[in-house]
Structure formats: structure tokens, C-alpha cells
Simulated assay, not measured.
Amino acid sequence: MLNVFASGIFGVIVGDAAGVPYEFKERDSFQCDDMVGWGTHLLPPGTWSDDSSMTLATMESIVRRGRIDTADIMGNFDGWLSRAEFTPYDDVFDVGNATYKAICRYQQGTEPELCGGTGERDNGNGALMRILPLAFVNCSEKEIFAVCSLTHGHLISKLCCLYYVYVARNIMLGYNKVEALQFAWQKLADYCHDMPPEIQTVNGAWNWQRGEVQSSGYVIHTLQAALWCFYNTASYRECILTAVNLGDDTDTVAAVAGGLSGLYYCLNGKDESEQIPGEWIAKIARREYIVGLCNKFAALING
């Protein structure tokens, strides 16, 4: 049985790996009903992508430094992109444009928290996909914004990350799905009184019909889709398969949804069948390393 921290992190990584073979495929042009391999990137089952690499890079920095150190986290991101650290097979096969440009700015001497693009077209999902570890630590909204800004500096990206962290924390407080989503939205509205209209479309997106849900790499679409999958399914497996079968940015939508679902069913699953399938975890590349890092992270958080 995974502890709550490992359930959240493996929730991200397993979802990521399930989606990797189907990335960029058009909705309803395929059917995903299990964790498989090959596909888009021609990689074996259990291979995770940049979503998980950057999540692990963030965790490793927090464990080693004992706190949030944005310069150190950015150094880990550089190690991932430049030297294939935090990867399953010593190879970087997937990186978003905004993230790539941000790390290049860092390599050229830009201050870490100023590296993320600030234009409206810089609102990809590359910060949202890696932000879950901050839900586990005692950090402020300012710190969440700072970690987001390492690669994505626009307010829309920062608010999406903040809302996601709020939802994850509500799950860990024992709220049900409706409460976790609605209470997080109220907290976000209290924090940001002048909410951008794009962000406002997130509220209630979990009640949409499937045809209304978009699953692109735009951070708003990714968040909407992940929340919809989380809310409208009754187990981790169902959540991930639902996310992947939306098509398009399959790995990231499944990773973002999987983080919440992994947490929720660890704490609220009536039996193990609702939690992350053991046979999926068994396929994950470098799972022993991930378990070890999760255990170190949990020890740090628990004092």
C-alpha cells in the first residue's frame, strides 16, 4: 500500500505513462483500455515523460534542500533537459516549447523566477503538470506562483496551478469531490478578486458533457479536462482511461487527473480496486527510485 504522498505522485506518473503511447492522437480514433507501450513515441509500457521528470525534479530539490528553493529546482530542470536526469531511460523525448525556452533563458543567465514566459501564448500546461508536490508542503501562494513562474509566468498559468494545489489539499483534508472542488474555487476567488475570464471557465467544468471538454496542451483545457475526469469517474483506473481516451495531450491530462485521483482513492477508496492498480505500478520504469524518493519526501513532511 502506498502512503498518501506516494499515491499522489504515482498517480501523476502512472497517468503520464498510460497516456504516453497515445499522445497527439485524435479523440475516438483509438481505444485505451489498459497501460500499454510503443504508440506515439515507440517506448515500452511504463515509460513516463517530462510531466513526471519535472515532478520528480521538484520533489528531489525539496527533499535535498528541506525547503522550496526555486534556484535549485530550476537547476534540476536544467539537469533534466541538458543531461537527461530524472528520466526513465536517460533520454529526454518530450519537452514543451514554453518549458524549453524557459530553461534556455536560465542557461543564458536569467534569474530563475523570471524565466517563464509571460505572454498569453505562453500558457501551456508545463507548470500545472509538475506542481502537485507543493500541495504537500507548507508553502504560500507566493511560493506556488514562484515555482510556476520558473517555466510559465503568466497569471493564468499561476492561478491554474494554485487552484490545483487547493483541490489537492482539500482532498487530503478529507473533503469529498464536490467539496474539494467548490471550496477550492471559493478560496481562489477570495485570493484573486479580479479573476481573468479564462480562469472563470474552470468553475463547474466538471459538470460538462464529454463533447464540451477539450484536452489540448492549453493550461485551461488541461485543467478543465482533468477535473472533469476526476469528478465523473469512480476509481483511479476509470479516471485514467477516461482521460487518455479524450485524446490530444493524453499524457498530461492523465497525469494531472491522476494526481488528484491517486490522492482521493488512497484516502477514500472502499477497496484496493479503486486505487492505483498494482499491475500498472509494476510496469513503471525506475519505480524503486520513485518509491524511495516518495518515502524521503514523506519523512521530511512528517518531521
Rank of each mutant, 00 (worst) to 15 (best):
K283L: 15
C294G: 00
M172F: 10
Y264M: 07
K25P: 00
F136P: 03
S29M: 05
P21G: 09
D33Q: 14
E143H: 05
D90H: 11
D190W: 02
E23Y: 10
V95C: 06
Q108M: 07
E212W: 00
V178M: 10
F5I: 15
Y218R: 04
G217A: 09
H221M: 04
C229D: 05
N170I: 04
V291Y: 13
Y22I: 13
I281A: 01
V147T: 14
G117D: 04
M35Y: 11
D51L: 03
V4D: 14
N170Q: 13
R210C: 04
T99H: 01
I62T: 08
H221V: 11
T110N: 06
R83T: 09
W206S: 00
T242I: 04
L2P: 04
E85D: 13
C160S: 12
G46L: 13
D33I: 12
G124K: 00
Y100F: 15
N302V: 06
V20Y: 01
I301P: 05
A234G: 08
V167Y: 14
A102S: 14
G153T: 08
G119R: 02
K187M: 13
M129S: 03
S157G: 11
E85Q: 08
F93C: 08
S140E: 12
C294M: 11
F93G: 12
E238G: 00
V14P: 08
E113Y: 10
A298E: 15
R130Q: 11
L114F: 13
N207Q: 10
A146F: 04
G153H: 14
A18F: 07
S53C: 07
A180Y: 15
Q186C: 09
Q107G: 15
A226K: 04
V20S: 00
D16E: 09
W208E: 13
D51F: 10
T87V: 15
M1A: 05
P133F: 07
V202M: 11
A226C: 07
E143G: 10
N268G: 03
L114V: 02
Y191L: 11
H193Q: 14
A225S: 09
T250C: 06
D94W: 06
C32S: 04
V14E: 10
Y231C: 01
H152G: 12
T252Q: 02
G46C: 07
P44S: 05
N268F: 14
V95P: 11
N232E: 07
D271R: 06
Y265D: 00
H193K: 10
G8Y: 06
W228E: 05
A102D: 13
T201H: 00
S61A: 12
D94K: 01
V178R: 12
L114A: 12
G259M: 06
T118H: 07
F145Y: 05
R121Q: 13
Y22R: 01
G119T: 09
Q200I: 03
R64G: 08
F5R: 03
G126R: 01
L263N: 03
G39F: 12
H221C: 13
N207W: 12
G303V: 02
K142I: 12
A234C: 11
S82V: 10
N123V: 05
S7Q: 02
Q186G: 08
C160I: 01
G66W: 09
Y166K: 05
L128F: 05
A282L: 08
I284R: 02
S53N: 12
G39R: 08
L246H: 11
Q224Y: 00
I281P: 06
G109L: 12
N232I: 11
S216G: 11
N232V: 05
